[in-house]
Simulated assay, not measured.
Amino acid sequence: METPPPPTEHAPPTERDVAAIGAQLGRVPRGLRAVAHRCPCGNPDVVETAPRLEDGTPFPTLYYLTCPRAASAIGTLEAEGVMKDMTARLAEDEELAAGYRAAHEDYIARRDAIEVLQGFPSAGGMPDRVKCLHVLVGHSLAAGPGVNPLGDEAIALLPEWWRKGPCVDPDGGTGAEGGDQ
């Protein structure tokens, strides 16, 4: 697979970005803080969300994957048992487990820099198991290669989700491929 572009500087979303994200999700995005990564097509594919939603509800998923094509491909990996295999490897490979713990610490530090959610775990099952590849891939895309080893592995297993062009048209299309992660 061709590698997706490196993380973008996390910047507030433009009106066009908000339209694209809404079309991708099929709903108004909640807790949106920034675009954390852009797909090669130009649309956001990972957003940074607030640790708490507007109503005060904790939302520990800091990096939320919005692209329905990427989300679908990740769902296929999950259905194929990739998470179970990764979790088993964490118990056997001390170096991998240490890298995954460091990814957990990075995730918490990034979230805590915005707001501390005392007593809330990171996300995706970190640091002891793999519970959600969507979160791990989102973290890897947002933080860049080398931060989350299992997120990086999952990205390497994915097809090039951007090859068909944009998943939504923020200038008028409603995103027939909208997803709900």
Rank of each mutant, 00 (worst) to 15 (best):
E2L: 13
T3S: 15
E9M: 12
H10K: 04
P13M: 11
P13W: 05
T14K: 13
E15F: 05
R16I: 05
V18K: 09
V18S: 00
A20R: 11
A20V: 11
I21F: 01
A23I: 10
A23W: 05
L25F: 10
V28C: 00
P29K: 07
G31M: 02
G31A: 04
R33Q: 12
C41K: 07
P44H: 04
A50R: 14
P51A: 00
R52W: 07
R52E: 14
E54G: 12
E54H: 14
D55A: 00
D55R: 09
T57D: 04
F59T: 01
F59W: 08
F59Y: 07
P60R: 15
T61C: 01
L62K: 15
Y64G: 00
Y64S: 00
Y64Q: 04
L65W: 11
P68R: 09
P68M: 02
A70L: 09
A71I: 12
A71W: 13
S72Y: 09
S72T: 14
A73E: 13
T76K: 09
T76E: 15
L77S: 03
E78K: 10
A79L: 06
A79I: 06
A79E: 06
E80F: 05
V82R: 11
M83N: 15
K84S: 13
T87R: 06
T87Q: 03
R89N: 08
L90G: 10
A91K: 14
A91W: 04
A91V: 09
D93W: 04
E94N: 03
E94R: 08
E94T: 03
E95C: 05
A97P: 12
A97W: 13
R101V: 02
R101I: 08
R101H: 13
A102D: 01
A102V: 06
E105Y: 04
E105K: 07
D106C: 05
I108C: 02
A109S: 10
R110S: 02
A113C: 14
A113V: 11
I114M: 09
Q118K: 12
F120M: 15
P121W: 12
P121T: 12
P121D: 07
S122E: 15
A123Q: 12
G125W: 10
M126E: 05
M126F: 08
M126G: 02
M126W: 10
P127R: 13
P127M: 10
R129C: 01
V130P: 03
L133N: 05
L136C: 09
L136F: 02
G138K: 14
G138Q: 03
H139E: 04
S140F: 00
P145E: 13
N148M: 11
N148T: 08
L150S: 09
L150W: 04
G151T: 07
D152Q: 13
D152G: 12
E153S: 11
A154H: 06
A154I: 08
A154M: 04
A156V: 05
A156R: 15
L157I: 06
L157T: 07
L158W: 10
L158R: 03
P159R: 12
E160V: 11
W162E: 02
W162V: 09
G165A: 06
P166Y: 07
C167A: 02
V168E: 00
D169F: 00
D169L: 00
P170R: 04
T174Y: 04
G175R: 01
G175I: 02
A176F: 05
E177N: 09
G178I: 00
G179A: 10
Q181R: 15
Q181W: 14
Q181H: 14
